[in-house]
Amino acid sequence: MRETAKKPSGRLRAVGVLGELILTAGILVLLFVAWELWYTNLSAARTSAAVTQNIQAQFAREAAQDSAGDAGSSSTAARPADQAPATVLHLQGQTFGVMYVPKFGQEWSRPITDGVGSEVLNELGVGHYPSTAMPGEVGNFAVAAHRQTHGQAFWDIDKLTDGDRIYVQTDQGYYTYRWTRTDVVSPQASEVLAAVPYEPGQQASKNVLTMTTCHPPYSTEMRMVAFAELESWQPLSAGAPAAIVETVEASLSASAGGG
């Protein structure tokens, strides 16, 4: 006589359902991590590259016009840092420049956009604190970017050291900043954004660049802040500084080719 198979008890069924839920949750977590670490970087890289190429093409047209108008004049000579023209303040959310940091990679470049909200940092790369100075203006030109996910523009910020330069291109020309120091501060340390960093209320006499990001990697517990000072300036018509010529030309070629 055949024995009838016993049905699993309610407790066993509950354990099975719970196991399936835990497995499903684990898969969802892994998918979310993959999305954060891979897809957001890929998406931001594509958007950032396209925006960079567009604004570089715009700058190239302006440089050609300037060269035609200034042929034979001395206006294309590099000026001292204290005579560099200030970039005009743009509207919130408007891209007005490109940043190049050879220490981050020979091909590294990111558009600079006014504002530090998620719509800027998550898709475009580098955001400008609207309350701070603009490139070429005496005071503190302060920017922010992610250190991980969403393009992780400032992933290598801790590697900046003596001799490193940061280049900023706007419709006025190329500003060359020289790295001076890197600090780790609390997220509430807004004094790093003052016209004279760490000295709110003081009158500025230097052109400073401040780069902020989260620290340590994969955490928002602290902030890493790199400082640099304006070293020199040259107009668009003079061409890019030697250290970034290949980077600029490669991006312009990609733009011209529809890449």
Rank of each mutant, 00 (worst) to 15 (best):
S186Q: 10
M1S: 12
F227L: 11
T176S: 13
R181S: 13
G163T: 14
L18S: 11
T170H: 03
Q169P: 15
L23D: 06
T113I: 05
P80I: 01
V15W: 07
E249K: 09
Q92H: 08
G257M: 02
M211P: 01
A250G: 06
W233L: 04
G173P: 04
A44V: 11
L37R: 13
D66F: 13
V248L: 05
P85R: 08
Q148S: 11
L18Q: 00
L28G: 10
F154L: 11
E246I: 05
V116K: 01
E199V: 14
D158W: 03
H215Y: 13
G97A: 08
I166L: 12
Y218K: 14
T87I: 01
M224N: 09
P187L: 04
S253R: 10
Q94D: 01
G97I: 03
I22W: 06
T170I: 10
Q65D: 14
E36I: 01
W108F: 13
G93T: 00
R178S: 13
D171I: 04
V168I: 15
G69T: 08
N140P: 07
S255I: 00
Q58H: 07
S186K: 08
L89D: 14
H150I: 03
T182R: 07
Q53H: 00
Y100F: 13
W35E: 12
I244Q: 02
Q169V: 09
T113E: 00
D82C: 05
L30I: 14
N122D: 11
S74F: 11
T210C: 10
T149Q: 12
S9R: 06
P200T: 15
R13I: 15
R110S: 15
Q188G: 09
G117K: 02
G69W: 08
G105Q: 04
H215D: 14
G239T: 07
